[in-house]
């Protein structure tokens, strides 16, 4: 079998439509993962023992089981209890939940990197806990973990292809469908792979550049945080 350029060209529009679904999955999943991960990371620092234990257990289950299994679980089990979700929404929710376990660890590293003195100083100023998180801790914790979060978004983009397993026609499943209809799998699957590769490669270059910029900003003595938020350097 040889490579047929005209067939490859003809299947491109359908593949791009699939890519658009993949992008939606990635963006939706990212927003969820970035928000839920932050909530998990903050809740993990609470003094209430049962909450901390529960959060730990949730993260453990999310990290210890395959994404595909989580996807099947939500897709097949929830309708049994009367919760019907569109396939795209199911994919976004499971992607977001799965990755929130990883982003939570990321945020945790960032939060633990903020010196203890910042907490003490904020308390001494009588700031409320909510205010301390919002105005003191998070503005220092989040910027330094942005490159790592970017890597997870990139990883999510690649993993979103698994959502095709529950019948969503994202990029990979579209390619497979074209192959199934025409019995020419080579062109569509190869093009899907090349699209994935190109986008994730560019994204990884972007993340690396971001990393370098933040690193050089730190070593140059400049603070990566906006000046009005730099409440003093760690000793």
């Amino acid at each position: 079998m040889y490579w047929d350029w005209s067939f490859a060209w003809d299947s491109l529009p359908a593949l791009l439509e699939g890519l658009w679904i993949t992008v939606q999955l990635t963006l939706g999943g990212s927003v969820l993962a970035l928000v839920i991960g932050l909530v998990l990371a903050m809740l993990r620092r609470t003094n209430v023992e049962p909450v901390r234990w529960l959060i730990g257990a949730i993260i453990e289950v999310l990290r210890g089981t395959p994404f595909l299994v989580q996807l099947f679980f939500v897709f097949y089990v929830l309708p049994k209890y009367g919760i019907q979700l569109p396939v795209l929404a199911t994919g976004i929710i499971v992607l977001g939940l799965n990755y929130s376990a990883y982003t939570a660890e990321c945020y945790r590293a960032g939060i633990e990197g903020v010196p203890q003195g910042q907490w003490e100083a904020a308390r001494a100023l009588n700031l409320s806990t909510g205010r301390i998180w919002r105005a003191v801790i998070l503005p220092q914790a989040i910027p330094r973990v942005i490159p790592a979060l970017g890597n997870y978004v990139n990883q999510m983009f690649k993993d979103s292809a698994i959502v095709g397993a529950i019948g969503l026609f994202e990029l990979l499943n579209t390619a497979k469908q074209i192959g199934g209809l025409t019995y020419r799998f080579l062109e569509p699957l190869t093009m899907a792979a090349v699209l994935f590769l190109a986008i994730s490669y560019l994204a990884s270059i972007g993340v690396r550049r971001l990393e370098r910029r933040m690193h050089s900003a730190e070593t140059a003595g400049a603070d990566v945080n906006p000046p009005h938020l730099a409440l003093g350097k760690p000793a």
Binding site: M1, K158, A161, L172, A175, F185, T190, A193, F196
Partner: peptide, 23 residues
């Protein structure tokens, strides 16, 4: 390394399973 890290396992699996035999 870059090619196999730049695409996910499932893309590679489908390619090896469906496309490689034809190729």
């Amino acid at each position: 390394i870059e090619v196999f890290r730049g695409t996910s396992a499932i893309v590679q699996l489908f390619w090896f399973f469906y496309a490689l035999p034809l190729f």
